[in-house]
Amino acid sequence: MSEFRVLQMAPPIEHQIKAMIALLKRYNWSRFGVVTSKMAGSKQFLKAVQELVTSNDDRSFKMKLVHHEQIDESSDEMGHIEKRLQALRNSEARIILLYSTTQRVRKIFEVAEKLGLLSEKYLWIGTQSVKGSMTTAIPPIQHGMLTINFHTLSNAMFPPADDVLPLIIGLAPKVSFTTYLCITVLNYKKL
C-alpha cells in the first residue's frame, strides 16, 4: 500500500464506459471498434469494455467489439499510426470508442482525416479526456463527435460555458410557444 493518497476529481473510467455502452444500446449500435492511445489506463479501458460487452444480459441486443487498435502516437513515425488506422478502416467498425487525451488525439485525427475516418460514415465517441475544452479544439476534428462529459467542477450546479444543453433547453419553450402561436394564427385564418 502506498503512503500517498490520491483523490481523483474526474469520474472513474468505468462510469464513462458505462455511459458509452448505454449510448450504444440506446441507438442500437451493436458493432463497434475501440481505439486507445498507448498511455496509462488504456489496457484497463479495453478490459472494462470487453467485460461490459460479455456481461450484457440483454438477449435482444447483442454487442460485439469488432476491432481494437492501440496507437503509440508518441512515435515520430506517422507510418505506425497510418498502419493502425488503415486496419481500423478495413474493419467493419463504424462506431469507434476512443480513449486518449486532447493532445494525443491530434496526431491520430490528422491521419484519420487523410484516410476518411472522420467522414459522416463514422462516429467517434470519446472519453472526457479527449474533449478538453472548446478552446483547445484544434482541427482536424470529427464534426459531430460525441464525448462523455461529467460536470466535476466545484461549481457543478452551473453548466460550463461550452455546454449547449442549457441553451437548447432554454430555447425549447420559445420555439414551442412560437410554433403554437403560428398554428393558432393559421387555424384562425381558415375560419
Rank of each mutant, 00 (worst) to 15 (best):
residue 117 L to S: 05
residue 119 S to E: 10
residue 105 V to F: 03
residue 75 S to F: 06
residue 95 I to L: 06
residue 75 S to Q: 10
residue 78 M to E: 15
residue 109 F to R: 04
residue 94 R to Q: 07
residue 155 N to P: 01
residue 80 H to C: 02
residue 142 Q to S: 12
residue 142 Q to I: 11
residue 95 I to C: 02
residue 125 I to V: 14
residue 82 E to R: 12
residue 85 L to W: 05
residue 137 A to T: 08
residue 129 S to R: 04
residue 90 N to F: 03
residue 111 V to M: 03
residue 126 G to Q: 04
residue 78 M to C: 00
residue 83 K to V: 12
residue 81 I to H: 04
residue 106 R to N: 05
residue 68 H to E: 13
residue 85 L to N: 05
residue 90 N to H: 11
residue 82 E to L: 03
residue 89 R to P: 00
residue 98 L to Y: 07
residue 75 S to P: 07
residue 99 Y to C: 01
residue 142 Q to E: 14
residue 103 Q to W: 13
residue 156 A to Y: 14
residue 115 L to A: 05
residue 116 G to E: 10
residue 153 L to A: 13
residue 117 L to M: 13
residue 81 I to A: 07
residue 127 T to M: 12
residue 115 L to I: 06
residue 66 V to P: 06
residue 126 G to F: 04
residue 96 I to T: 05
residue 101 T to Y: 03
residue 148 I to E: 11
residue 88 L to M: 15
residue 123 L to I: 05
residue 104 R to K: 13
residue 67 H to D: 11
residue 70 Q to I: 10
residue 83 K to N: 09
residue 107 K to R: 14
residue 108 I to L: 04
residue 131 K to Q: 07
residue 95 I to K: 04
residue 106 R to I: 14
residue 143 H to L: 11
residue 86 Q to P: 07
residue 135 T to Y: 02
residue 102 T to K: 06
residue 90 N to E: 14
residue 93 A to N: 06
residue 133 S to E: 10
residue 123 L to S: 09
residue 63 M to C: 08
residue 136 T to R: 00
residue 84 R to C: 10
residue 115 L to E: 04
residue 90 N to Q: 15
residue 102 T to S: 15
residue 152 T to L: 05
residue 101 T to R: 04
residue 65 L to A: 01
residue 84 R to D: 14
residue 94 R to L: 03
residue 104 R to E: 13
residue 86 Q to E: 06
residue 114 K to R: 14
residue 81 I to S: 09
residue 140 P to K: 02
residue 145 M to A: 14
residue 98 L to M: 08
residue 151 H to N: 15
residue 131 K to S: 11
residue 134 M to V: 15
residue 72 D to C: 10
residue 123 L to Y: 09
residue 121 K to F: 06
residue 88 L to P: 09
residue 80 H to I: 15
residue 150 F to N: 08
residue 91 S to R: 03
residue 73 E to W: 01
residue 148 I to D: 03
residue 123 L to M: 12
residue 112 A to G: 14
residue 125 I to F: 00
residue 149 N to H: 12
residue 155 N to V: 01
residue 153 L to C: 04
residue 154 S to K: 05
residue 90 N to R: 08
residue 155 N to A: 14
residue 76 D to Q: 13
residue 101 T to W: 01
residue 142 Q to N: 09
residue 141 I to K: 00
residue 87 A to V: 10
residue 63 M to A: 12
residue 125 I to Y: 00
residue 120 E to R: 15
residue 136 T to Q: 05
residue 113 E to Y: 10
